[in-house]
Design a protein around this nucleic acid. Structure first.
Length: 431
RNA sequence: GGAGAGGUGCCAGAGUGGCCGAAUGGGGCGCCCUGCUAAGGCGUUGUCCGUCUUAAAGCGGACCGUGGGUUCAAAUCCCACCCUCUCCGCCA
């Protein structure tokens, strides 16, 4: 959530920042929020005043009862009762207004960073680096989509995955399964120098899924386990962000740096049939996420670092990649500024998004109530959060199958993964 | 899943309707005493919202697991839920 107080102190700033997202409805929502907030403060003040009266009368009643002046006490109780009745009426209006305001605030997206590029949609995301490692030409053997080659190699068996679980599930076999796990292991090892490894729960409460901004807006995209009131996580960002929810951290503990491998579950509502072949889009996939909780002033540098770490993995895997910055019209609702890393897959002839790194300013931290205390100062401040995929397995797996395919049809394992492949240097067709 | 016990401030822990935002002890912070250390003395010690103010202070409200209820008045009584611990059952 953005800070409600911004609506009071800098409404023009909020409006112009949100206008850059190119969704006129947002400004209507802002106006509604302003009206509700104004009303809420009016009636809250009235309620507090009434409460003060009732509190005062009650104290007097207590004193009079002790002095056995029951008649006088009775008179005050009568007045207090009347005050209490009026208070109840106000309180129910407060509840209504507060709830309405909360619902709107939960849906108003974050303010884009001033340096985030303007743009109407994904076609206007500027390339800020690369392409790197992109050869002038690709061999014919690389121009075959991975769903054909990997199936032929016996390392991808989506047909049986579908038999078991339905459409849009994938299954890797043999060295294909090993490769998927190797990628996770590699991504974790590469970031272990600065990040604590977490193995979080894969199911979370509604409050947890709300903190990151996935609820209430994107309920249809998440798997719900209704019987137990739980949600399957769409990314490890969700449990990691809420790891310190409701806590006040010491400034000295910051930045908190966490990483986690986790399965990710997405219903992909609305995208059925799009990019669904092979490993491009599935209901379940593996990912290694890196995340930081930081003081606001440290966030820009951390954003650069996180992007650099995700980039380093693609470089080490010898894949052609580029970095794009997400423009205001394409930016996720919780994002303040974000960058994607895309890898080129010659068989699909497409740039695949393999990592997304974002700075959320205090938007998620306010929802999650993550605060910190500056050393030697009174009071607390809302922290900033940042996170990014270090490595999302399926598309990287696909890109390896296509880019590193040899003229003989085998797939070469990049050197950095060799320690995790049980001695295999190539994936070759079964004899 | 069953039975029982419990959730109070930074920590321990008292508090069964009013004088309780909360005793007492410990810790932290400040000052004093002290050659140094130890011991001791005095004081102080949370968060959120609103209001006034350039700001601080002040003032008002809220917070004793969470949400409801009873009452003039709730940490305290009632209901539901969540969590923790012990025992039993089940189980990788």
């Amino acid at each position: 959530m953005i800070d409600v107080r911004l609506l009071r102190t800098n409404l023009d700033g909020v409006r112009s920042a949100l206008a850059r997202r190119g969704k006129p409805d947002l400004l209507v929502q802002v106006d509604e929020a302003v009206a509700l907030d104004t009303r809420l403060r009016e009636i809250s003040l009235e309620r507090d005043t009434l409460r003060a009266e009732v509190n005062d009368l009650s104290k007097q009643v207590g004193a009079l009862r002790r002095d056995k002046k029951n008649d006088e006490a009775e008179a005050l109780m009568e007045r207090s009762r009347a005050g209490g009745d009026r208070e109840r009426v106000l309180q129910s209006e407060i509840d209504t207004v507060q709830d309405a305001l909360q619902q709107i605030m939960l849906r108003i997206p974050n303010l884009p960073h001033p340096d985030a590029p303007d743009g109407a949609g994904d076609h206007e995301n500027p390339i800020v680096k690369g392409p790197i490692n992109l050869p002038a030409t690709f061999g014919e053997h690389q121009r075959v989509p991975h769903w054909e080659t990997a199936t032929a190699l016996g390392i991808l068996d989506n047909e049986r995955a579908t038999k078991i679980a339905g459409a849009m599930f994938t299954m890797q076999r043999g060295l294909g399964a090993t490769l998927a796990r190797a990628l996770c292991q590699f991504a974790l090892d590469q970031n272990a120098d600065a990040f604590e490894e977490i193995r979080p729960p894969s199911f979370v409460t509604t409050a947890t899924l709300t903190a990151t901004g996935h609820l209430p807006k994107f309920a249809d995209d998440a798997y719900a386990i209704e019987r137990d009131d739980l949600w399957a996580i769409p990314t490890a960002e969700v449990p990691l962000t809420s790891l310190h929810a409701g806590e006040v951290l010491d400034e000295a503990e910051l930045p908190v740096r966490l990483m986690a491998y986790s399965p990710c579950y997405r219903r992909e509502a609305g995208s059925a049939g799009r990019d669904t072949r092979g490993m491009l889009r599935a209901h379940e996939f593996d990912k290694v996420e890196i995340l930081a909780i930081a003081r606001p002033e440290d966030a820009p540098e951390l954003l650069t670092e996180l992007v650099g770490r995700a980039e380093a993995l693609m470089a080490a895997l010898e894949l052609p990649y580029r970095i794009i910055e997400i423009c205001t019209g394409d930016m996720g609702g919780s994002h303040h500024r974000s960058f994607d890393i895309e890898v080129y897959a010659p068989g699909c002839d497409a740039w695949l998004e393999v990592s997304s790194v974002s700075w959320f300013s205090d938007y998620q931290a306010r929802r999650a109530d993550i605060r910190f205390k500056r050393t030697g100062q009174k009071g607390t401040e809302i922290a900033n959060t940042l996170n990014g995929s270090a490595l999302a397995v399926p598309r990287v797996w696909a890109a390896i199958c296509e880019n590193h395919r040899q003229p003989d049809g085998s797939v070469r394992i990049p050197d950095v993964l060799l320690p995790y492949m049980r001695g295999a240097t190539h994936i070759t067709p079964k004899a």
